[in-house]
Amino acid sequence: MKSKIRFSSVIGFIVLLLLILPLMIVIITSFGSETAISFPIKGFTLNWYHNVFQQPDFVEGMKMSFIVAILAATIALLIGIPAVYALTHFQIHHKSWFQNIFLNPALIPEIVIGFALYQTLVISFGLPLFLSLLVGHCLLCLPYVIRLLTAGMMDFDNRIEEAAWMVGYNKIVTFFKVVIPNIKQSILAAFILSFITSFNNIPITLFMNGPSLNMLPTSILNYLENNYDPTVSAVSVILMLITAALMMIAEKYLGLNKLT
């Protein structure tokens, strides 16, 4: 018993270090004063953070990525909530079949989704890039929404909803006054996960960005092709701060285990 615990705790500790150290290095190099990334750093400067905001691609990309992530998560919820309600409340023939359709996007590799959407929506239909990208990100978020909300809805006792009908509220009002408040944790969890998934996505975004549509992750990728300086470290730190902020929100309102 003892030796097993000791063995696993040594490995576990090393693994944790391996998980943190690379990110630590990124953080530290973002403050280095040399123009080429070096570790350990020689001097201290905040110039690279300043430089991040001098890059129109990064600033625009950040804005765009925020907008797309919020829209995609919201739309996925607006589509997903009614579907989950129907799937959990009504007797439907071939219910698992429908469930699988909704989880479908998780089955197809993201890069394939991106490619297929680009071919059909952008090239054949001539849909604006922004709309096509939004579609892609909604599809990406939908499985998360369906999975988390189904779990939340299953935990909710249908009798509570019926009790509201009995005291005189119609089904739509009941849905907003009784059902939604009781699954709001799942909704928040689904939103946060969807937001992060969309915000961080590269494989789908790759096909549907361009001079007119900058997204942050692909902008960083492009920047890395031509430059290798601590600006990337600095923008990485900013991304980590966003992740940390979302984790804090999740921890405060949900408990972190809701996110996994």
Binding site: R159, I160, E162, A163, A164
Partner: peptide
């Protein structure tokens, strides 16, 4: 008025 077996309070 209905009283459910499981109470079903909000």
């Amino acid at each position: 008025g209905m009283v459910f077996q499981s109470y079903a309070l909000f």
